[in-house]
Amino acid sequence: MFVRTLCGQNQNGLKRICVFFAAVFFAAGSVFCQKYSAEQEQGFEAFRKNDWASAMFFLRKAGSLPEGFDEETLYLLVMSEINACEYSDALSDVNVFLQSFKKSQYLPYMHFQKGRVLHLLERNEEAVLVLSDFCHLYPDSELYAAALYWVAECFYDEYNFDSARALYERVVSDFPADSKAGDCRYRLEMIAQREREEKLIYLLKVTGEENLSAREEYERQIKLYQSQDKMGLRKSLADSQNRIAELEAELAEQKKANSALEMKVKNFGEAISSQNVFEEKKDGEIGGKTSVPKTDPEIEALKQKALFLQFLLEEK
């Protein structure tokens, strides 16, 4: 009937422990009261009221005297120190008890408390050894299931979940009525939940790696396409520039050809004008009238057209 810790957790179980040991120490009634000193009685009373600071003060004072140094006083001092979370002092006093009262009726309890205090001090390897010795020495003790539980807690704190789960399951199956069975069931649920979380994390990790690989491949393809597009644009731009250069050259040649053609047309027009003047002059001389040429406009136009057509045929 011991709780997981005696520092701020499961106060109902803690009170039951206090009542149990108070009943043990005061079961003899007035006989015990007569043999205890005033400091011891004050310490016992403070312990009964869960006043751990006062209990430690009076019990340490009583234990410092030869007549007050007995197994009951030292045991209650250890329990007060555990309840007050003074684990280092509790371990020191436990060792004193084990050395001083080797035949005490409270020896199994102190052996158990030593293993539990070592666990509370996070010295789990030592705690496992002490609690395992307890289970070997006292297989019929009412604290046997609690000892298994605390061994499992040591493994749990060291992340050895397989060993812890085996012990939790043993307590649940072999000691279903023990007060630690409920705590063991809770731990088993936590271990199962942790395993589910680890599997989920593994799946997320694998999925994340696959997604990362796919994303990297996608980005690589995008960069490749962009590079290809840039190369294609560069080629298209170069082709366009070459085509523009060719068109500009053709335009320059066309302009040059047009200029030459205009020059020829101009020369041809001048030649036609000269020819008309010559013919008019000739007709004037024949008719005896040099001042007024005799020409028909329609005939002149037809002549010009004929000459122009002849010129074009020669050009072609």
Rank of each mutant, 00 (worst) to 15 (best):
A23T: 07
Q310C: 14
E216Q: 14
E39H: 04
T5D: 08
C33Y: 13
N258R: 07
A192H: 11
P139C: 07
N267G: 06
A90Q: 08
S259D: 10
E125Q: 12
A301I: 14
F44G: 01
F311N: 02
L59H: 02
S92M: 09
K114V: 01
K289M: 05
K282W: 09
S64F: 04
R60Y: 03
D178T: 01
L76K: 01
A46S: 12
I222C: 07
T295I: 13
V128N: 02
A145P: 04
E195P: 02
L129F: 10
E217K: 15
F32D: 00
K15R: 15
A90K: 05
D51S: 15
Q99H: 09
M110I: 11
F175M: 03
V265A: 14
E280W: 03
R220E: 08
A62D: 03
Y218V: 00
Y218P: 00
E315K: 15
S259M: 08
S274R: 09
E315G: 02
A23D: 10
R215M: 07
G269E: 09
R187H: 10
S179N: 09
F101Y: 15
F134L: 05
F32L: 00
D93L: 08
A192C: 08
S54Y: 04
R196E: 12
L167T: 01
F2L: 12
E197H: 10
S213T: 13
L233E: 14
E209C: 05
K35T: 02
A214S: 14
A238Y: 07
L77N: 02
T207E: 11
Q193V: 00
D229T: 11
A146W: 01
L204C: 04
A53P: 04
G13Y: 04
D51A: 15
S141A: 12
L247G: 00
R185D: 07
E210Y: 06
R234M: 12
G269R: 10
E219L: 15
K15C: 04
E300W: 05
Q221S: 11
C184A: 14
A152T: 01
I286M: 12
R243Q: 13
A127S: 15
S259C: 08
Y225G: 02
T5M: 03
F44N: 01
K223N: 11
L200A: 14
A166Y: 05
F57Y: 10
I191K: 04
M79L: 15
E217P: 01
L148H: 08
G232V: 13
N83V: 01
E153M: 14
G68S: 06
L224D: 10
E209V: 14
G8D: 12
I17H: 04
T290F: 07
R165Q: 10
G287V: 10
E300D: 09
V24M: 08
D89R: 11
E219M: 13
D174E: 11
Q226K: 14
F112E: 00
S236E: 12
P176A: 05
M110N: 06
R185L: 15
L118T: 01
E216N: 14
Y202F: 05
D70Y: 00
L203W: 03
E250M: 10
S37P: 00
Q40L: 05
N160M: 11
G232Y: 09
Q221T: 02
K256Y: 06
E279I: 15
L312G: 02
E71Q: 11
Q241K: 15
A245D: 08
N83Q: 08
A27K: 13
Y87I: 00
K205P: 00
E298N: 08
E270Y: 05
R234G: 03
G232A: 13
F161T: 01
